[in-house]
Design a binder for these strands. Structure first.
Lengths: 163, 163
DNA sequence: TATTGTTATACTCTATAACTATA
DNA sequence: TATAGTTATAGAGTATAACAATA
């Protein structure tokens, strides 16, 4: 009787024209793909972000990384656990404040990050396949502005699920 | 000693320039806000979407709605439970196939949907505050294209968390 | 044999509360 | 008294497996 096919609908324009919905849909798709291709490296979208922040912003405390990426400090623990277990980061001790962990990226970690970035690049091409170079820049710029990522330091409290 | 403030970093360009990251960040922020403002209406971003699909695409089975929005059929059960409990939708019986529930939106449901859309509109203005009308259209169009929402029927399996 | 809706269950992700060691 | 890190625990949200009713 093919009820399934007869009933299958396209997302109604009333929903599909809402920026918030297309945003969600694009994110979910991109996130799932990224998670997939990152798995062989022992990384997740989140730990990938953590790895970049530590690499770029020198030895950092777990709290500092969490604030930067809006990740709760209890979530940071297991995130860093995984990165350490993979040999990508080390928990050093801070001489001036023995409470904090000085997070540093290892040579292996830098290699993994490089590989992950190459993969991310490929995936980007896949995701943005239909867009010209100009359009890609436009999209990134527009998203960056609504995400509040244009250099301003965030004052927001940690919230959920950052890819 | 102000270690916290001294250590706080801005998201490094190496991460912030990746479209996938700004996408995630923009989505998380928009989703959290939408969830917040929808709560008084007894709706979530997801049930809001379900309500629109049922309203727009006539009486539908739960399976059909799920396929359209990429929501698993077991998830659909509790989603429709909530909408029904709120008096927004009714589970009618389909005369030709007594397995399926014919989902219809009630008058109260239509009212709630209207209110939710007005709220969504306000939130949109808040989210896209820095963007001109042209830029908003550009953004929606670009996102729609990478989300594969341009009229083509999806062949993908249900996946996670669609706002 | 396949499909719709359902339940029970498990898994993932994240946050809250409470603890320790430091400051 | 406050903060960094940690643990145990609870809460969402979602998916898997199995079932009844129907096709």
């Amino acid at each position: 009787m093919e009820l399934t096919n007869r009933d299958r609908t396209v997302v109604p324009a009333r929903l599909a024209r809402l920026p918030g919905y297309v945003l969600a849909r694009a994110h979910v798709q991109a996130h799932a793909r990224f998670q997939e291709v990152l798995e062989p490296l022992g990384l997740t979208p989140k730990s990938f972000g953590v790895l970049i922040v530590i690499t770029e912003s020198g030895p950092l405390s777990q709290a500092a990384v969490g604030e930067t990426l809006l990740i709760d400090r209890t979530t940071m623990v297991s995130l860093v656990d995984d990165l350490q277990r993979a040999g990508y980061v080390e928990r050093g001790r801070n001489a001036t404040d023995r409470r904090v962990h000085s997070l540093r990226v290892t040579a292996v970690g830098e290699e993994a990050l490089g590989a992950a970035e190459r993969i991310a690049c490929t995936l980007q091409d896949e995701l943005l396949a239909g867009l010209s170079a100009d359009e890609r820049e436009q999209l990134s710029a527009l998203l960056g502005r609504i995400a509040g990522l244009s250099g301003a330091s965030s004052d927001r409290a940690p919230s959920a699920d950052l890819g």
